[in-house]
């Protein structure tokens, strides 16, 4: 079977805009794994493909929205969450998923992230964290570890990185999970859970960046990085996200937060009903 035939017959093929393939991502990049897990999740949940919207920002993973065969929008840099907020509030029937990178979501878009989490807007945010700005050639970002080499930290990084899971939890997310691109089944399970949960959910996937960050930092091939993930990852469900740091010797993964809190949309609809009922009573 030829490559194109293989793709057409793959059980997830119907979820892809096949005319946009091949994708732009490097060999060994985790973005394809994230996309695969997301497609498996919507396949297993049998999501109504006419009622799901995928929104992305700018960067390598930003192209993901163009690849998935649902309503999708590729926003400006950092604004995916703000755009998604508008979509979800304007039409609460839609399932709105933001898939973007660590630089897009937490540097230029950081303000939107914390406020959407605080408001508990009912959107799902999935972040591919590769520790740098890959698309522009490997500059340091808000997740780059101390001492790491990037094209704009030629003497090593002197900025402390964000712990994204801790940030999400502190800002008010009702569901926070972290996996690496090695944990495909658990990542898929987390996406399924987030899609079924009301409120602002955040899933971080630690990704290899074999052509850029990993190469600059002499971490070996993509397979070597996956081996490193296996070696140092420890599953700690319910772990205090503040303590879930990522170091060379330890990556704590798991479901860190899973709480219930009314979403912004629910509170808005309840308030609207109250106000409209009162107006009707006053009129009658």
């Amino acid at each position: 079977m030829s490559e194109s035939n293989l793709m057409m017959h793959h059980y997830l093929a119907k979820y892809l805009r096949q005319e946009r393939m091949p994708h732009i991502w490097c060999e060994g990049c985790g973005n394809g794994i994230l996309l695969n897990c997301f497609l498996q999740a919507i396949n297993e949940l049998n999501v109504d493909l006419n009622k799901i919207v995928v929104v992305s920002g700018i960067g390598c993973i930003g192209r993901v929205s163009g690849y998935i065969n649902v309503d999708s929008f590729h926003t400006t840099h950092g604004r995916a969450i703000a755009f998604a907020t508008g979509v979800k509030l304007a039409n609460p029937e839609l399932e709105v998923v933001v898939i973007s990178g660590d630089g897009d979501l937490f540097a230029i878009g950081g303000n939107h992230f914390i406020h959407a989490a605080r408001r508990n807007v009912d959107i799902k945010v999935i972040c591919a964290n590769n520790f740098n700005y890959g698309m522009t050639g490997g500059q340091y970002g808000p997740t780059t570890p101390l001492d790491a080499w990037t094209t704009t930290t030629p003497y090593g990084n002197i900025e402390h990185p964000f712990n994204l899971a801790h940030l999400a939890a502190a800002a008010g997310a009702v569901y926070v999970a972290r996996w690496t691109s090695l944990h495909v089944r658990r990542l898929k399970a987390s996406i399924i859970k987030a899609l079924q949960k009301e409120g602002f959910s955040f899933i971080e996937m630690i990704s290899p960046c074999p052509e850029i960050f990993d190469r600059y930092n002499k971490m070996g091939t993509a397979v070597d990085v996956m081996k490193w993930f296996r070696l140092v990852s420890q599953v700690r469900h319910g772990c205090d996200p503040a303590k879930a740091e990522i170091t060379e010797n330890e990556i704590l993964v798991g479901e860190f937060v899973d709480i219930e809190k009314p979403s912004y949309g629910r509170l808005l609809r309840e308030m609207t009903s109250r106000v409209q009922d009162k107006l009707k009573r006053e009129e009658s």
Binding site: G78, R79, G86, N111
Partner: peptide
């Protein structure tokens, strides 16, 4: 919705229009 800044405001408005 009162957004966190004007960048978020216009982005949300674009999203709402597309919705």
């Amino acid at each position: 919705v009162q957004m966190e800044d004007e960048i978020g405001s216009i982005a949300a408005v674009i999203g709402a229009s597309y919705a």
